[in-house]
Amino acid sequence: MQTFNRSIHPGWLIIAPLLVLVVTLYLGPIMNILWLSFTDPEPGLGNYAKLGESDALLRIVWTTVRICIVTTLFSVGLGYSIAYAMVHCDQRQKNYMLTLLLVSFWISILVRTFSWLMLLGRKGLVNGTLENIGLIAEPIAFMRNELGVLIGMIHYMIPYAVLPLLVSMQSIDTRIMDASRNLGASGSQSFLRIYLPLTLPGLVASTLLVFILSLGFYVTPAVLGGGKVLMVAEYISVQLLVTLKWGTAAMLAALMLFGVLAMLWLMSKFMKLSTVFGGTTR
């Protein structure tokens, strides 16, 4: 008992209550879901076998992954240029941009989603205006399809993409870019050989963050997809609340969890995860 006591760092005592809380309230339910996915309605791999049997289920998973990939590409791409602009303009403009970014960050997802409907819906501002000036005869279908889901999700995700990139870009010594120019590198050479590699950890962090958050999107596809775009999160909710197939729901949830863990594992093969999440390069 004595040796056991000695080997425990006193710091653990301070976080012990928190640890208990996390284990019981977070890990517990997750374990329960994993358990359910193997046992409900009957023990075995039956729920996972459905993936192979049901086209519909596979299509939902594929739709989700496809939408998440497109969302991630656009959010991170746009986020990269926004972060770049913020780092390289003067302090006052930077404050304005940061305020605007954070305001959109803080507004409820429900409000932002319905705003898109008002703006781009069949009778929305854009279609109405275009019809009134005679540019189009029929309203353009921006909403109630996959395009609508993508617009809503990319818009929601941009602040998440910008923030890790901003941190990573801000930490670059401007003299390093001067040095690259001084040594004769053109703008694109400096970007590809110095700036991009140095912001790569931020880029990876932002990609991971956006992709993982996108996987769980529920409100936006439900509202902007108009029932035509079914993603995993919405399907899980239907299984839980309507059809009461908890086993299938648990299986899909477990699948997403494994997917995320697999991505983190894959990423850790290429770089230290601690650098991505703000640790030092060394």
């Binding site: 003299r175 390093i176 001067d178 120019r181 040594l183 004769g184 110095i194 590699p197």
Partner: peptide, 20 residues
């Protein structure tokens, strides 16, 4: 002539080496 075309060597304060 822009900096990248001047062909002047420069040692920066703090060195500004490429860390990667």
């Amino acid at each position: 002539v822009p900096a990248e075309k001047r062909n002047f060597g420069m040692v920066f304060q703090g060195y500004a080496l490429f860390p990667h």
